[in-house]
Design a protein around this nucleic acid. Structure first.
Ligand code: MN
Ligand code: MN
Ligand code: ZN
Ligand code: ZN
Lengths: 142, 142
DNA sequence: ATGCAAATGCAAATGGTTCGCATTTGTGTT
DNA sequence: AACACAAATGCGAACCATTTGCATTTGCAT
């Protein structure tokens, strides 16, 4: 995976401390983060940061496809993750909200069949799995 | 599919004009509707209706699983649809937002495989397809 | 018909997100 | 290294979907 610096260079974005910090935090996170999650983590290191800046940086990143905005049922805020290059799907833990990526896709063949059956020109699909990660599974069964 | 009256009876909910109207509108709609969409449609027939009542009715219905709340990328409002009894998936037109249901599910076998591979206890999945419905496909190609 | 919990209307409050504007900063150019 | 200027930022106010408090009305069991 590219470094935060490279990501900014690649998209002709100015390298600011805040942008780099947001990319770094997202990169190291194993779950989705809200603008406010990021804002609070950033405050721990840099007193001088504004929530609207976080929103504006995220907006820019989403526009450039560096970051994806995600809507999950367990939060009414928009959450963010580093965008994934390859097509894949997610395992989302309903308990701790950790996210694991799966590269395989069981759907593509099926797509052609329903495209035909419903006369629908399918462009893409969204598939996520919900359940308990191994840690939460162990913890909750004890 | 049950009648609006039956749905309310089944869940011990008082039969009010507004509740019946919301169920009827949702039943007849071929796409998701926001609280405000419903509010405006209801105003056409009944001057005296409040948006907060619409929200409260929807909240009750979602709690009883009569209605599902849906988050779609093309709207930042929460949208609603009549809940579906059987497990299935949706074809969502990115142009006109019409929704078509597919009963088949290509994912269930796959679930066992990844459950094992990732030591994740998968409880359910969410799969939607996005593309163009037959009408929009025809319209946009002309 | 009566009583009371549940449902409603209305206005105000909330909370996440966006915007306006004055100030600062990154970076290409001298 | 200083300069110039567009882009980025901080701060507060605005925005908009949704929720809530409260007084009033309504559905329905008795
Ligand atoms: Mn796929
Ligand atoms: Mn399925
Ligand atoms: Zn977990
Ligand atoms: Zn369409």
């Amino acid at each position: 995976m590219k470094t935060p610096e490279k990501m900014l260079e690649l998209h002709n974005l100015k390298k600011t401390g805040h942008r780099l910090m947001i990319l770094t935090i997202l990169k190291e996170s194993d779950r989705f983060l809200s603008a406010d999650d990021l804002y609070m983590k950033m405050k721990e290191e840099d007193e001088n940061i504004s929530l609207s800046t976080v929103y504006r940086i995220l907006e820019t990143f989403v526009l450039k496809s560096i970051v994806s905005a995600v809507n999950v049922e367990f939060s009414k805020k928009v959450l963010y993750e580093l965008a994934h290059e390859a097509h894949g799907h997610r395992l989302i833990c309903t308990n701790c909200h950790k996210v694991v990526y799966v590269e395989d896709c069981p759907v593509h063949n099926f797509e052609d069949a329903i495209s035909e059956e419903y006369d629908f020109d399918i462009k893409r699909h969204k598939l996520d799995f919900y359940g308990l990660c191994s840690e939460c599974k162990a913890e909750l069964s004890s």
